[in-house]
Design a binder for these strands. Sequence first.
DNA 1: AGAATTTGACCCTA
DNA 2: TAGGGTCAAATTCT
Length: 243
Amino acid sequence: MAKRGDYMVSSSGSSNGAHKRLLPDSSSYAQEHAKKRVHISSRTEYTYAPYHDGYQWRKYGQKMIRGNTYPRCYYRCTFHQDHGCPATKHVEQSNSQDPPLFRVIYTNEHTCSSTHVSDYMASSIHIQQIADASLRKAEMEIPRLTDCVAGHGLVKEEKDATVSSLLTVINGCDVVKSDVGHAALQEITPFLMDRNSYEAIPSVSPVQLAASDELKTDFVEPPESHWFEPLDLGWFMEYTQTG
DNA sequence: AGAATTTGACCCTA
DNA sequence: TAGGGTCAAATTCT
């Protein structure tokens, strides 16, 4: 990585002249880019909690991608500078459901001795609770929808299809479904009731979903699209507090 | 004040 | 040449 001292000042093309851009020496810059093209590994995951994957990330860019409804956010490992950790990830919202599902593309493995905690049980329980909350919320919304369109035929099949779609997602989650898991869930629930304590939960792994087209098309797109901040789990906190 | 994020320009690849 | 990925100054947050 070129250091600040390696850069030359050049005009950015901006008309006000106040915005100068530092450009690297061209040869070192080309070498750096050549290195970046060699990706060690890459994988895609779908998750409701794109930020809470046990690692610390720093956002370094955001961009609207052609054809996408939502922007793509670029993150790299917090220890990129300190330890030269090459891990990066791109996060983009893949639908406008509530909760929204995010597509996360991980590139390169962590080489830092980062903060990842493999507390699988805690992660799974947490994910299970999010999934359960999602389903219960959907089940509450559906009768309301039925009332709205009474006489206009929101038929049982549509309700079933919606629930089926949610179950497809939830069943795709690599979560704890045992009684043990639920018992442990009871124990951590008080923590989840407090937003500040929630932030202190050490590790939440991504929900492991098949990155298939079937999964994506199984969602029913609502008429309006809303973009959710990847960190926003407000809906979940509200739900756990009210019911 | 230092850390983190936002933003818009630049560079590279296809 | 368009689009995606990255950089770094400016801005916001803690």
